[in-house]
């Protein structure tokens, strides 16, 4: 292993995210190279500093406000039988929106924004994301207000 290889993997080494063989190669290089050994110490020092950051407390009464906000929501949703139909309906709307978007793109230059948002109607947004609850990709149609 050379110095360049070591420095490329120093973060993974400090995080113990390398294979056993790679860890040994890094360890070996560290013993013979003062510069890379210092680089590793700096990486570990930064990690230690970040790990020892104080855990901040929320403002007084936050827990109660949180409870009140959740209580105001009423009963949580239940898994409903019509969910597959809703998914299909949303997909159909999103598909129509994509077609509309394509048709609109003939009238003007193609957008180059690095965004997952596609304009849909005057005040709505069609958004493609991963489902945070583990259900795979999701397309949502929502108000365009931030």
């Amino acid at each position: 292993m050379n110095c360049r290889g070591f420095r490329n993997k120093v973060a993974q080494y400090a995080d113990q995210e390398l294979s056993g063989r790679e860890m040994l190669a890094m360890q070996h290089h560290c013993r013979c190279c003062e510069g890379c050994a210092a680089e590793l110490r700096r990486e570990q020092e930064l990690k230690n500093m970040l790990a020892s950051m104080k855990v901040p407390e929320p403002s007084f009464g936050f827990e109660d406000r949180l409870c009140a906000a959740i209580n105001a929501e009423g009963q949580p949703r239940r898994e409903s039988a019509w969910r597959p139909w809703r998914t299909a309906a949303v997909a159909a709307v999103a598909g129509a929106a994509l077609v509309l978007g394509l048709l609109r793109s003939f009238d003007r230059p193609a957008p180059v924004a690095k965004s997952d948002f596609i304009d849909f109607g005057a005040d709505q947004v069609v958004q493609g994301t991963q489902d945070p609850f583990g259900g795979g990709p999701v397309i949502t149609v929502s108000s365009g207000n931030p």
């Binding site: 949180l66 906000a69 959740i70 929501e73 949580p76 949703r77 239940r78 609850f133």
Partner: peptide, 11 residues
């Protein structure tokens, strides 16, 4: 938390 509450059945 509000979003989590709405989708708590998926937890």
């Amino acid at each position: 938390y509000i979003r989590a509450y709405r989708f708590f059945f998926r937890y």
